[in-house]
Nucleic acid binder design. Sequence first.
RNA 1: GCGCCCGUAGCUUAAUGGACAAAGCGCUGGGCUUCGAACCCAGUGAGUGGGGGUUCGACUCCCUCCGGGCGCGCCA
Length: 568
Amino acid sequence: MYTYEATKRDIVEAIRRAAGADADLVLSVPPSGVVADLALPCFPLASRLHKSPHEVASSLAGAVHIGPRVDSVRADGGYLNFTLARAPFASSVMSDLAQWKDRYGSHDVGAGRAVVIDYSSPNIAKPMSVGHLRSTIIGAALHRLYASLGYTPVGINHIADWGTQFGKLLYAFTAWVDRQAYAEAPLRELLRLYVKFDQEAQRDPTLDERGREWSLKLERGDPQARALWQEFVRLSMSEFTKTYDLLDVRFEHVLGESFYADKVDAVINEAIRRGVAVEDQGALIVRLDDVGLSTPLILRRSDGATLYHTRDLAAAIYRLKTWNPAQLIYVVGADQRLHFRQLFATLRKLGYDGVFVHVDFGLITLPEGRMSTRKGRVVFLEDVLEEAMLRARRLVDEKNPELSADERADVARIIGIGAVKYVDLSQNRVKNIVFDWDRMLSLEGDSAPYLQYTYVRARSILRKSGDAVPEGVFDPRAAASAPEWGLITLLARFPEIVLEAAQTYHPHLVATFLLSLAQAFHGFYHEVPVLQAEDAPLRQSRLQLVGGVATVMRGGLDLLGIRVPERM
RNA sequence: GCGCCCGUAGCUUAAUGGACAAAGCGCUGGGCUUCGAACCCAGUGAGUGGGGGUUCGACUCCCUCCGGGCGCGCCA
């Protein structure tokens, strides 16, 4: 057990014994103005004991038997404030770090169980837009977070490669393709065709009929339709792969909707057999009024075709049966809330039990409104990433011209991509984001480069000291000053931040924490000499602190999928 | 019309129902002959969209109004 967790557990135990009651004893971190390290608000306890909060706090202050890591207990109004014993606490934290090294902050609560995480899921035959960024980045971060909790994450890219829009595209392709443009930039040409179809269909409604015919051909395995569709998939995936490589995002499985095309019949039959699905106006639907959803889930259209709901249901059942996961997680935009409520409710009606989670997030919109590929109002992800690396490169060239061109390119990539990811991961998911180049590509202040710079500075000190973090007893004098003690308590808190971020599906908690750590480290850096410390033991212990910051910063950023350079 | 989400300094965002709401950007002033100035320090600036309520305590929970977004059976 990590030091911080053990310390809090001991304190809560001591209070419980002294109070002889256990209302909700939740320790909190006191605000900056209060000189204490942990606090217990005594209000709930007071109402249970029918005394005033101050009375409770005062009597507890005298009665609590404090353990070795606590130095003193004091009543402050209705709060019971604890001051930690710096020497033993600090040396215990530093020994955690020395013991766990790069794994510091990880847990084993997952016990090897699978967690299926569905993220990214772009559309075949369309270039990825910035709209795909959030799912991809948040999903990849959750993947890493759950891995660090000891789960076996199963990342799935649920490619949208099936459905009626492919009928339209197939018709458009056979009618209007510009071969040369297709050879040069296949996805942009396919997008043009898709848009053209939509425009033409408004003038000529018979085109929709053509689209349906091609859609049917595809479903029935018509060789021409099938071959073209496969080509679209292949070309799209090769573009996507480049983007994923750039983003350093991986999946255990890439399984498009088409993978479930031959699995929907069994699901439909099961739903009918269990009386969950009923015929209505020619369609097959699942009524969900009894769980508060007035809109039913449609499993089969009146013309016999299935929908993405059906394939999603088949996919969910496939995942449950294949991996028996502790959780089924979907990282998909908030506009699909209803869809997932319907999906989860239907799963339960079919007798499937489990933890089903829709990790939703707000939309990315443009200043002029919602993005629309059809209207050509869209920002492509590729362009954003290129621009990010370009801006980072200019900055690296300016700040560090002495680095080799190769290293500058490498650093620019780490910083540029990191900056884009950080924007998404540093704020709560639920809010909509209005796309703004300067904001998306910010390289200063509360940004990835600021955190990366923290690591670079720490590493720079360590390199000058001979690289390896020295071992040995932690000198209590290195926990004496405010900047030093601040760093120690932050380092101590990292493991519980990781746990909470994963369990609440909120990667931004890690980002917020790392920002505090970075600010604390830069303050420490300016105030406390490390290499020039007065004597060897002090220097060695401060080097351990610097090493701890480097480890946690790199590890924390790694959980967010953000890499660190050694120099920048 | 019904349902869900969002509204915090000029801007972008933080804040397990708990102590005087915290950062970044911006603006003003200061700091490189000590470990990297992509940095640091100080100042400036909101009482959390409005109004009720619950609570010892509300940015956080409930109601209502306003503003914005999303969704609402045969698209994905």
